[in-house]
Design a protein around this nucleic acid. Structure first.
Lengths: 349, 349
DNA sequence: CTGAAAGCGCTTACAG
DNA sequence: CTGAAAGCGCTTACAG
C-alpha cells in the first residue's frame, strides 16, 4: 500500500506538506502543491481513512437500530435516514435486532468502542432509562422515550388517532377493531410507540358510543403472523365494520375481506397507519394516516448532529445541554413531534 | 477517554500485558490477568476499535450497494445480507445509489480509502468491466457481470422463466404482457439482471404461438410510476390475459384489474417475479417465482469471505485466484447460480 | 511557507 | 511469562 511517506519521498517534501495538500488546509506554495499532486497521481495515492479516524476519534458513521428492514415501516425509515445522513457526510450502519441474539446491546457496545459516532434507536428495548442515560454517547430515540438526556423524535400520534376517529364517526362506523402491539406495553412509561394513537381512538370511540375492540398483532418481525391476525379478526368479531392497523395489517385485512366476500368500503372500512409503500400495494388504494418520514429523518439527523457536536465540544455536560433544548416548548411528554396527514383512499366511506 | 495506558498504570503492568489480556492472546499468568481485569473494571475501560482498525487495516464492514431499500426487493436482499454478515462478524454499511449524486463511485472511493473491507454490488452501473477489475479490492456482484475476477451470484432466471412459461402455456393464456426494465438494456453483456427470464419467456411464448408483448416499467427507484405502468398495460392491450412482472408491478396490476372489473384469475392471470413480502400484501395471494434470498445472501457472503481472505493472503494474484474458482463448473455465463421456486397463488388458473 | 516531532490507541515481534 | 520499542498512516501544533 502506498502511503503519505511514499508520496513525500517521491515529491521530495515532508510528510506534513503532503498532508496539507491532501487536506487543503494551511498554506502551501503553488510549486510545492504541484510537486505533491504530481507524485500523488504518479503513485496512485489514496488516503487511508482509518488513520484519520484514529486521530479524530471519529468514524462519521451512525448506527440505525431497527427490528428489521424486512418490515416496510423500518425500511422506509432507514432509507430516509440514510439520505439525511449522506447529506451530512455521515454513513449509515445497518443495525437490526431481529437477528442479533444480544438485541441492541451489541450495537451499544460498538458505539462505546467508537465503531460509530452515534446511534438512532428505533427498536423496542427492555432496558430501563438509566441504562440509556449511562451510556454518555450520542443517542437519539425514534418514537420512544429512553430517559432524560436522550432526545427523541416521534410522529404526532394523538392527531393521527383523532383523524381516524373523526373518519369513523363521520361515516357511521359501529364496531371498530384496532390492531396493534402487545397490550401489556400500554403501561405508563412504555417505550412502545403506537400506544398513543390507539388510546386516542379508543377514547373517542367510547365518547361516541361506538364499539371498539383491540387485537394484538404478531411481532413486527414476523410478517406471516399478520395474515393469521387478519383472519382471526373476522372470526372473533363477525360484525366488525372498521379495521385500523399498520399498513401490513391493513393490507392483509383487505385481502382476507375479499376472500370472505365482504365488500369494502360498503360493509367494512379499513384504515392503514404509517403510509409506507406497503399500503399502496394492497388490493385497493388504502385510506391511511401517513407519517412524514422525510420530516422524521430530518429531525433525527438534526438531533444527532447536535449530540455529536456537544460531545466534541465538552465532555462534561454534553448530554444535559441537548436535553434542555429538546424539552423546551413541549408538554408533559418530551421529544420533538412531527405532524402526520390523512390520505383518503378506496377503503373508507 | 480511558485507554490501555491508564489501565496498565492502574494495574502496575505494561501496556503489552494489558493488550494480551484484552485480546486473550498469548500467555499471561493468572495473577497478572486478575490485576489487569480489576483495573479494567475499576476504570470502566473499553477498547477503542479504531486503533485496532488502523493496525489491521480492516474495518470488518461491508458496503452493500443497492438503488434504494425503499424497494422491497432490495430491502429483502439487504436484510438477508446483513444477517449473513453479522454471522461472520461483519457489519453492513448501507450504500444506496438513488440519493448519491455520484452513484456508486462514491462508495467505491470509500472502499479504496479503506472505510470498508469490501463491496456487494447490487445496483445498476454504467461503468465498463475494466473499471471494476481495476479496483483490486474485494467486490462481489449480485445479478450482474462486472468483468473478469469479480465473482458474481444470481438467481436461476432461466428456470424462473421456464416455470412461468409452463404455467402460461398450461393454462391456455393467449396474450401475455411482460413488464421489465428498459429494453435498451437487453443487449449482449448488459449488467441488467432480469433480462434472462424475460428472454426465456418470450422464446417459449413464441414457440407456443402465444402473443407476448413487453412493457417497460419505470425505474426501480420510482414506485409511483408502477401504478401508471399498470394502467397503461390495460389501455394498450385490452385483450391481455396474463401479466408477468416484479412483485410491485404485479400488485399494482392486480389493483388496477379489480378497479376495471376484470376478474382474476378467470380472465387475467398475474404472476409476480421475486417473491418478497410485497407480493403477499396484494389484493389476492399472488402466484410467484420466488428468489431464494437466504441462499443468495449466503453465497454472496461466502464469495466475499474468499475475496477478503485472498486479499489478506497475497497482494498479488488475489483477484485471479478467486476468478478461476468462480468460473469453475459454470457454462458460458460465469457466476454462481441459486435456484428459484414457483409458488402457486390465487392469481393463476 | 515547510519540516521534524509527537501523538491518536492499539498490536506485535523481539528481547529478557 | 512480561516489558520496552517500533509501528499502523495520518494530523497537528510548534519551530524555523
Amino acid at each position: 500500500m502506498v502511503g503519505m511517506r511514499d508520496v513525500a519521498k517521491e515529491a521530495g517534501v515532508s510528510v506534513s506538506t503532503v498532508s496539507l495538500v491532501v487536506n487543503g488546509t494551511g498554506y502551501v506554495s503553488d510549486d510545492m502543491r504541484a510537486k505533491v499532486e504530481a507524485a500523488m497521481h504518479e503513485l496512485h495515492y489514496i488516503p487511508n481513512e482509518l488513520a484519520r479516524n484514529l486521530y479524530r476519534n471519529r468514524t462519521n458513521t451512525i448506527g440505525v437500530i431497527v427490528p428489521t428492514i424486512l418490515h416496510p415501516f423500518f425500511a422506509t425509515l432507514t432509507a430516509h435516514l440514510q439520505r439525511e445522513f449522506a447529506r451530512r457526510d455521515l454513513k449509515t450502519l445497518l443495525c437490526s435486532t431481529a437477528d442479533a441474539a444480544t438485541g441492541e446491546s451489541e450495537y451499544v457496545n460498538m458505539l462505546q468502542r467508537h465503531m460509530m459516532d452515534g446511534i438512532i434507536m428505533a427498536a423496542h428495548t427492555e432496558h430501563q432509562p438509566d441504562y440509556w442515560t449511562s451510556i454518555h454517547r450520542p443517542i437519539v430515540a425514534f418514537d420512544r422515550i429512553l430517559g432524560e438526556g436522550v432526545p427523541s423524535v416521534r410522529s404526532d400520534h394523538e392527531t393521527g388517532g383523532r383523524m381516524i376517529a373523526r373518519q369513523l364517526i363521520g361515516s357511521g362506523a359501529r364496531h371498530v377493531v384496532l390492531v396493534g402491539g402487545p397490550r401489556s406495553q400500554f403501561a405508563e412509561g412504555t417505550t412502545f410507540p403506537t400506544v398513543r394513537y390507539h388510546l386516542t381512538v379508543e377514547r373517542m370511540m367510547a365518547d361516541a358510543g361506538i364499539a371498539c375492540d383491540y387485537v394484538e398483532a404478531g411481532s413486527v418481525t414476523d410478517v406471516v403472523a399478520h395474515e393469521a391476525t387478519a383472519a382471526a379478526i373476522f372470526e372473533r368479531y363477525p360484525d366488525v365494520d372498521a379495521i385500523v392497523g399498520s399498513d401490513v395489517v391493513a393490507a392483509m385485512a383487505l385481502q382476507e375481506a375479499e376472500r370472505r366476500g365482504i365488500s369494502v368500503p360498503a360493509n367494512l372500512q379499513i384504515i392503514a397507519y404509517d403510509g409506507t409503500m406497503a399500503a399502496e400495494l394492497a388490493g385497493k388504494r388504502l385510506a391511511m394516516v401517513r407519517q412524514d418520514f422525510a420530516g422524521i429523518a430530518a429531525a433525527l439527523a438534526e438531533q444527532m448532529d447536535q449530540q455529536i457536536e456537544a460531545e466534541n465540544g465538552s465532555n462534561h455536560g454534553a448530554q444535559s445541554k441537548s436535553a434542555e433544548q429538546v424539552d423546551a416548548g413541549e408538554s408533559a411528554q418530551p421529544g420533538q413531534v412531527v405532524p402526520v396527514s390523512f390520505i383518503a383512499g378506496e377503503t373508507t366511506r
